[in-house]
Nucleic acid binder design. Structure first.
Length: 410
RNA sequence: GGGGGAAUUCCCGAGUGGCCAAAGGGGGCAGACUGUAAAUCUGUUGUCUGACGACUUCGGUGGUUCAAAUCCACCUUCCCCCA
């Protein structure tokens, strides 16, 4: 608490843009500030991009400020065009409500919402019951279309097309900020850098309606050193929901980030103290792996808890290190009767969903990418029998890094 | 409201009657090299089949034709120009 949280955020490289750098710093150093970050429930789980915002929220909370997490149940009905080249798919109200409840549960693990230390509010509370004409008269008047069109977030969309519904998103988000200012004394909005113009919209609105000053600050988007968005895999996003991305896969994702990205990720996504990170930044070559281990472990711990992080770590070390322990490896099972008399290796893999099609399995085997209990499978007409299972389990390795354990189901 | 254009396999994008499961690139996957990294090189990338081959795919629905991603009609969605 002795150091200003602004300095912490700056030191770790979070800050992208601020409306008034000095004033914000002074404000954060002198009083408990109520601030907000919005999350639109467009999927049924948070992902790493959201995580970065939550980490910031956590820093802020620890520094004595009061976070408001806005669940965008209302804004998700419209869809934010920022940073997109095409229109979002429209979600039904039921989907949104479901997603919002998923978000709610996940956020609780990262920010302390007990005893009013942080608030979680769904903006559908006020947005859904707005009256069109009065909204236009009260809020719409304050927006200049000319100015909106010059905003970066709309520029690209003017080339590709932008529907009226999306064009309204900025007004809705601005109205949220005004509402929170009025009802909760919230005078600071944070968000990803793609939210910059939406945040400015809210600040302008507060100035015009209330004659008061509000502040905004955005954070760097989580990108790789090559500027690509992080947290994407061939299977899609890296989710925080353990049912969508297992703790083991989650751990592996971070264990395998590019050398060039490790330090940045440590700064932005973990609470590892800066002096330690700076120490790690001096590590070279193979030793960078140690930094990746710290990253993967710390991050898994933040998201899934210490127990899961330990498990993911020991599973990884067993597989990639010397040991052969398979305890914590992702496991699939096969019914005993399917196995009796032997089963084609391809059928086994397809049935257990370890490969999507036989064609892909053949390719994998032809190219020497499949091993059973560490022995390369040479032909794809191999029959697997119970004899192949050692102590009731079979370790399937695809390529270099993907391990699965198959067990027999009675 | 009027006129013009577009919709292709994960993505971008070629393909304008048979030689098309469909060029090229990206991405993915696998192999070599490594440090569970990057870069590089090689192979591969609709489904089924040991293979020959068979089957399904080019926005949707019908039609023309021996034969259609390619032609026609209607529909849907999107873009551009004019108002």
């Amino acid at each position: 608490m002795s150091t200003n949280v602004f300095d912490t955020l700056k030191e770790r490289g979070f800050i992208a843009q601020t409306t008034h750098e000095d004033k914000i710093r002074e404000l954060l150093g002198s009083e408990s500030v109520t601030f907000y970050i919005g999350f639109d429930p467009t999927a049924d789980s948070l992902h790493v991009g959201h995580l970065l915002q939550l980490i910031v929220m956590s820093y802020m909370q620890k520094a004595g400020h009061r976070p408001i997490a806005i669940l965008g149940g209302g804004t998700a009905m419209v869809g934010d065009p920022s940073g997109r080249t095409d229109m979002r798919q429209m979600l039904t109200q039921e989907q949104i409500a479901h997603n919002a409840s998923c978000f709610r549960d996940q956020m609780k693990g990262l920010v302390d919402f007990s005893e009013g230390k942080a608030l979680m509010i769904d903006n559908s509370e006020w947005l859904l019951k707005l009256n069109y004409v009065s909204f236009l008269r009260d809020i719409g008047v304050h927006f200049s279309v000319n100015r909106m069109l010059t905003a970066e977030c709309f520029k690209s969309r003017l080339e590709k097309g932008l529907s009226f519904i999306e064009f309204n998103y900025m007004l809705m988000q601005s109205y949220d900020f005004l509402k929170l200012y009025q009802d909760y004394g919230c005078k600071l909005q944070l968000g990803g850098d793609d939210q910059w113009s939406n945040i400015l919209g809210g600040i302008d609105l507060i100035r015009r309606v209330e004659g008061a000053e509000a502040y905004g600050m955005t954070f760097k988007l989580l990108t790789t050193s090559e500027g690509k968005k992080m947290g994407k895999t061939q299977k899609g996003a890296v989710w925080l929901d353990p049912n969508k991305t297992s703790p083991y896969d989650f751990y592996q994702y971070w264990r395998n980030v590019d050398d060039a990205d490790v330090i940045n990720c440590l700064k932005l996504l973990t609470f590892v103290p800066m002096d330690q990170i700076e120490e790690m930044a001096t590590w070279k070559d193979a030793r960078i792996n140690d930094a990746k281990k710290v990253l993967a472990y710390e991050l898994t711990k933040i998201v899934h808890g210490e127990t899961e992080a330990e498990k993911a770590r020991s599973a990884s070390e067993a597989l990639f290190g010397q040991g052969t322990s398979s305890e914590n490896m992702p496991t699939v099972s096969i019914p005993k009767k399917e196995l009796s008399g032997g089963i084609q290796i391809l059928d086994l893999l397809v049935n257990t969903k370890l490969i999507p099609s036989k064609g892909e399995g053949k390719r994998l085997i032809q190219q020497g990418g499949l091993s059973l209990n560490n022995e390369r499978v040479e032909t794809f007409d191999k029959i697997v029998t119970e004899a192949d299972f050692k102590e009731g389990e079979l370790i399937v390795r695809k390529g270099k890094k993907s391990y699965h354990r198959v067990v027999v189901e009675e």
